[in-house]
Structure formats: structure tokens, C-alpha cells
């Protein structure tokens, strides 16, 4: 029993992180139809920057916002320099560009920071709380809470604000959105900025538990993507639930099967979803116009 609860805790914790990554994917996907492969790097920028600042004596309440701003700048620069000039290009081109951005950012972090593994202390200390004989880290509560807040803000933003409506309009028909007077460029820039902030926040919250290093982004992106696929591409609720599920699947794989292959669980989910449920839990299959 206590073992089971323990796996649930760790699954929920990492799942919430994957959910945040998936939410970041969803934002950009909804605005532009692009899957931004450098989403994982935003998470690493958040975690690494915070870790390095804290190590040099900056308090967390200052380090975290700086890290998020750094990621936002990276996201906006990425859009301005690489995505915007290639607007209207074939999907393959955009995929290669965001992959390139991912590798570039990875290299940048290796250069600016280092190749070490980083972490810092949890926001509310390291003293775990015992529940049903299992240990819950206070940081896990921060992570779960953070993801929920991001989710709620995102849903509110997309459905209740003018900018959010612009994002949705841009995604469903870019020409119509332009005709309706929406500045589609600044809308997409906003989506990249928000997505970067979402990723970086996940990194800031997660690093005390998951640690981080310059090359941690790929795996993070992969799992975020698995989460998004499981939930249904484009759906914020799907991203949240998909993330949590991937986290749980991974934790139980590690606990009951083999910790060597816990990372394989996400791939397995990707393959199974592709096979049996291409729309995911909350998604829909888009009809293409010919």
C-alpha cells in the first residue's frame, strides 16, 4: 500500500511537469500549427538559470522571475528570427527549424553555463511529509499546484481574453484572422512568449526534484509530446490529464517493472496512441480540405 502511494506521488509530481510541457506545446500548436521541438529547452533554461543564480547567492524569489524572463526572451527571439521568416513554409521545414533551435539552445546553455547536473533546495524545505506511509516532498505540492495554476490561467486566457481569442482565431484560419484585423504576427509572438514562460516555470518548480542539465530538454520534450498526444493534440485539458497519466505510467513502470526502462514507457504510449487512438483522449481528428 505505502509503496503504491509512493509511486502515485512520484507519478503525479513528474506528471505535472510533463503536463506543463504539454501545455506549452499546445499553446504554440494552437496558434501556429507548429510543434515546437525546443519546448524542452525552455524548461531547462528555467531550471538552469535559476540554479546558477541561486548558487551565486541570488534569492529564489528573484532568480525564478529572471529565469522565466530569460526563457521568454529566447522564445520571442526564436519566433522572430527563425519561425516568422519561414511562415508558410512546408511543415518539414518548420520541424527542422525548431529542432535546430532546440540543438542551438542546448549548445548555448552548455556554453553559458556548463555540462554539470544542477539542482537547488525545494521552496519549502526538504522535509518530506508522511502520508499513508509514503513520503511526499513539499516541492511536489508546489509542482502540482503550479501546473494547475498554469492550466487554469491558460484556459482562462484562451477563452476569455481578446489576445486568447486572437490565438484561437489565428489557428483556425489565418487568412480570416488577418481579414478580421488580427495582427497574426504579434499573436504568434505572444504564443511563443507564453509557451516559453510556461516551460520555464515548470523548470523552476521541477529542478529541486528532477535535477537539470543542459541536455535534459529532449527527453522532457518527448514526454511532454507523449502527454499531449495521449490527451489529444490541441486540447489544454488533454495536455493536463495526458501529462499526469504519463507521469503515473512512468512511475509505475519504474516501480514495478524496471527503472532502466522507465523512459521507454512514454514511447510505448506514443506508439499505442498512434495505433489505436490517433485522436487521443480529448482530441479530434482534423479533416483536411482538398
Amino acid at each position: 500500500m505505502s509503496e503504491f502511494v509512493q509511486f502515485c506521488f512520484s507519478g503525479l509530481t513528474v506528471g505535472a511537469i510533463y503536463a506543463s510541457v504539454a501545455l506549452g506545446f499546445t499553446l504554440i500548436y494552437n496558434a501556429s500549427g507548429v510543434i515546437n521541438f525546443s519546448q524542452g529547452e525552455f524548461v531547462v533554461i528555467g531550471g538552469m538559470t535559476t540554479a546558477v543564480l541561486i548558487a551565486s547567492g541570488v534569492p529564489i524569489w528573484l532568480a525564478a522571475p529572471i529565469a522565466i524572463i530569460a526563457a521568454v526572451i529566447a522564445g520571442m527571439t526564436l519566433y522572430k528570427l527563425a519561425i516568422e521568416p519561414a511562415r508558410g513554409a512546408p511543415l518539414v521545414t518548420l520541424i527542422i527549424i525548431t529542432i535546430g533551435a532546440s540543438i542551438f539552445l542546448r549548445g548555448l546553455m552548455q556554453t553559458v553555463f556548463d555540462k554539470q547536473i544542477h539542482r537547488y533546495e525545494g521552496f519549502s524545505g526538504e522535509q518530506s511529509i508522511a502520508i499513508f506511509g509514503a513520503a511526499l516532498l513539499p516541492q511536489s505540492i508546489w509542482i502540482l499546484g503550479g501546473s494547475l495554476v498554469v492550466f487554469v490561467l491558460l484556459v482562462w486566457f484562451l477563452s476569455r481574453t481578446k489576445a486568447g481569442n486572437a490565438i484561437r482565431a489565428t489557428s483556425s484560419d489565418i487568412l480570416a484572422a488577418k481579414l478580421a484585423g488580427i495582427n497574426t504576427n504579434s499573436t504568434m509572438m505572444l504564443a511563443f512568449a507564453l509557451s516559453a514562460a510556461t516551460g520555464a516555470l515548470a523548470g523552476v518548480l521541477a529542478t529541486p526534484v528532477t535535477f537539470t542539465s543542459y541536455d535534459a530538454g529532449v527527453l522532457m520534450a518527448l514526454k511532454g509530446f507523449a502527454a499531449m498526444m495521449l490527451g489529444g493534440v490541441g486540447s489544454p485539458a488533454g495536455a493536463l490529464i495526458g501529462g499526469i497519466l504519463i507521469g503515473l505510467i512512468e512511475a509505475f513502470t519504474a516501480g514495478y517493472i524496471s527503472s532502466d526502462y522507465k523512459d521507454a514507457a512514454a514511447f510505448l504510449v506514443i506508439f499505442l496512441v498512434l495505433f489505436f487512438m490517433p485522436g487521443g483522449l480529448f482530441g479530434m481528428v482534423r479533416v483536411e480540405r482538398v
Binding site: 528570427l81 527563425a82 521568416p85 519561414a86 513554409a89 521545414t93 527542422i96 527549424i97 529542432i99 535546430g100 533551435a101 532546440s102 540543438i103 542551438f104 539552445l105 542546448r106 549548445g107 548555448l108 552548455q110 556554453t111
Partner: peptide, 19 residues
């Protein structure tokens, strides 16, 4: 030394400037 950055930059630049 800057292999990652170089590869990343080459991918982006090729796709943007010389598809």
C-alpha cells in the same frame, strides 16, 4: 567546441535562407 550551437544554427539558417 560549439558543435551543438553550430549544428543548430546551420539547420535554422539553411532552412530560412537557402531551403
Amino acid at each position: 567546441e560549439y558543435e551543438n550551437m553550430m549544428f543548430g544554427a546551420i539547420m535554422i539558417l539553411t532552412m530560412v535562407l537557402m531551403r
